[in-house]
Computed example of a mutant assay.
Amino acid sequence: MRTALVIGTGLIGTSAAQALASRGVHVHLADHDPAQARTAAALGAGTDEAPEGPVDLCVVAVPPAHVATTLADAMRRGVARGYLDVASVKGGPRRELEALGLDLSPYIGTHPMSGRERSGPLAATADLFEGRPWVLTPTRDTDTEVLNLALELVALCRAVPVVMDADAHDRAVALVSHMPHLVSSMVAARLEHAEESAVRLCGQGIRDVTRIAGSDPRMWIDILSANPGPVADLLSAVSADLDETVSALRSLQSSDEAKRGEGTTGIQEVLRRGNAGQVRVPGKHGAAPAAYDTVAVLISDQPGELARIFADAGAAGVNVEDVRIEHATGQQAGFVQLLVQPAAAPKLTAALRDRGWAMRQ
């Protein structure tokens, strides 16, 4: 791949363009808002000048509702040898393209499983996709050359290709992305009118649960409008679980011992099922989640403190597998949780204590 055209210079389009440009591909940028394309160009994502002739690959990075019309226009103009989109749903746009009677051999639907709470070109980064799954949904009609171009794109963005059926993909993202986003938003909505004294007690748990609720509502309306059925089915199942959990909690209020026992059993069951589901979430490098030990260190809110603690861990010969930061409410300090292999935890604890760090037991 030597040339590419990216149509849509939001977070995903600009990030992909930056990754391609940084690896020697000449990237052209287009957007319904020319100012946004100019911003992306200024960030090193390519040029906002139109290509003089057909490019190797056209990447359509627009909301799901506009994918089919944007692709159809690009294909009719013959702007590229191959075409793909990066929308978060795959079945609907393809059926819309089929209804338009287009030859879909030069097209493949794709979806990079990566994003951020922020949107727009200013939120883009060339390493957004590194190590992340990038779903490809080829059909029997997909030209081999186009599949190879898509695989090259994934490789240049340093993502991991995953081949799926389009409708299976849509059911999967409803489960792991779309439904969780709505649930996160529902939990966060409880905070909107909560007492300030309650909100001040927010800890890492509520931050984890509500983090994705900070995303752009307009973007999510586009996404959910393109995949409403599977998301509604999942929320219906969650609703049934909620009803059973509410009933179990009410039973715990009963003066009847047998009723309280039923409530305890009900709560235990939902927590057990939660444990069973959580351990299936892939861990580092997509492998089965590992059981890491946590080394918690008190850290002040000063420049260079995180860099210093990582340097000290490296000097101790310990690889930090993951890291979490727990902020202390109302204080210029917090705890850094360093997740390490169990055998390395005592060594790291001793080394950091020797270097003057305050440890939390």
Rank of each mutant, 00 (worst) to 15 (best):
G263M: 04
G8F: 00
L234S: 05
I12L: 02
E98W: 03
G109V: 08
R23N: 02
G330V: 15
H327S: 06
T349N: 09
R77V: 02
Q278S: 13
L298F: 12
I299V: 15
V320C: 09
G330K: 03
A41P: 02
E192M: 06
A287F: 07
A316V: 07
P64D: 11
M359C: 09
L271C: 13
V6Q: 00
L11C: 00
L5A: 01
G44C: 00
S184P: 01
L57T: 12
E262G: 07
Q361S: 13
A194T: 09
P282Q: 04
Q361I: 13
G8C: 08
I212K: 08
D256S: 11
S185G: 12
W134R: 03
N319V: 15
D233N: 05
Q268G: 05
L182P: 03
Q268P: 03
D216Q: 07
A296R: 06
E195N: 11
L252N: 07
A159K: 05
P63W: 12
G261V: 01
I108Q: 03
P106K: 08
A194N: 04
S225R: 12
V199G: 06
P303T: 03
A65F: 06
P180W: 10
S215F: 07
Q332D: 00
A17W: 03
L348N: 00
S255D: 15
E117H: 10
L175T: 14
V318E: 03
P64N: 00
R132S: 11
R116G: 15
N275W: 13
T265H: 04
A344H: 05
D85V: 11
L339P: 08
D233M: 14
L338R: 00
